[in-house]
Amino acid sequence: MKHAIYDQYGIRMERKISFRYYDAFWANRVLYVVTPVSHLEQDELKELQALSEFMIHRQKDIYVSSFVKNKQNEFCCEIEGKNIAIFRIPYQNEATRNLPLGSDLATFHTRSRSYPAKVTAINRIGQWKSLWEKRIDQMESYYYQKVRSNPTDLFDQLFVESFPYYLGLAENAIQYLVDAEMDDRPQPIDAAAICHQRFSTNSWQQQQYAKLPIDWVMDHASRDLAEWIRTECMTSTRSIPNTVQHFIREYESVARLSSFSWRLLYARLIFPIHYLECIENYYTVGHTGNKRAHEDHLKEVLNRSDYYEHFLHSFFDISKVPTRALKIPVLDWI
Rank of each mutant, 00 (worst) to 15 (best):
M1L: 09
I5H: 01
I5D: 02
D7K: 11
G10L: 04
G10I: 02
R12S: 10
R15C: 05
K16Q: 11
F19N: 01
R20T: 01
Y21E: 13
W26M: 04
N28P: 01
N28I: 02
V30P: 02
L31H: 00
V37M: 14
L40N: 10
D43R: 09
S52K: 03
E53M: 10
R58G: 01
Q59K: 11
K60L: 11
N70C: 02
K71G: 02
C76L: 02
E78D: 10
R88H: 07
P90K: 00
E94N: 07
T96D: 14
R97T: 05
R97I: 08
G102Q: 03
D104S: 09
T107N: 13
F108W: 02
F108A: 02
T110C: 04
R113T: 14
T120K: 14
S130I: 15
W132N: 14
E133T: 15
Y144R: 13
D156T: 10
F163H: 09
E171S: 04
I174A: 01
L177C: 10
E181G: 01
E181H: 11
E181C: 10
R185E: 13
I189G: 06
A191I: 01
Q207G: 02
Q207A: 12
L212T: 05
P213S: 00
W216N: 12
W216I: 01
V217G: 01
D219K: 07
A221M: 12
R223K: 09
D224H: 05
L225P: 05
A226N: 01
I229S: 02
C233Y: 08
N242W: 04
N242C: 07
Q245Y: 05
F247C: 07
F247K: 07
E250V: 04
L257R: 04
S261Q: 03
W262Q: 06
A267M: 06
R268H: 06
I270G: 04
F271H: 08
I273W: 03
Y282D: 02
V285G: 05
A293I: 11
H294N: 14
L298G: 09
E300D: 15
R304S: 11
R304V: 05
F311N: 09
H313V: 09
F315H: 06
F316H: 15
D317G: 08
D317V: 11
D317Q: 12
R324N: 13
I328F: 13
V330C: 15
W333F: 13
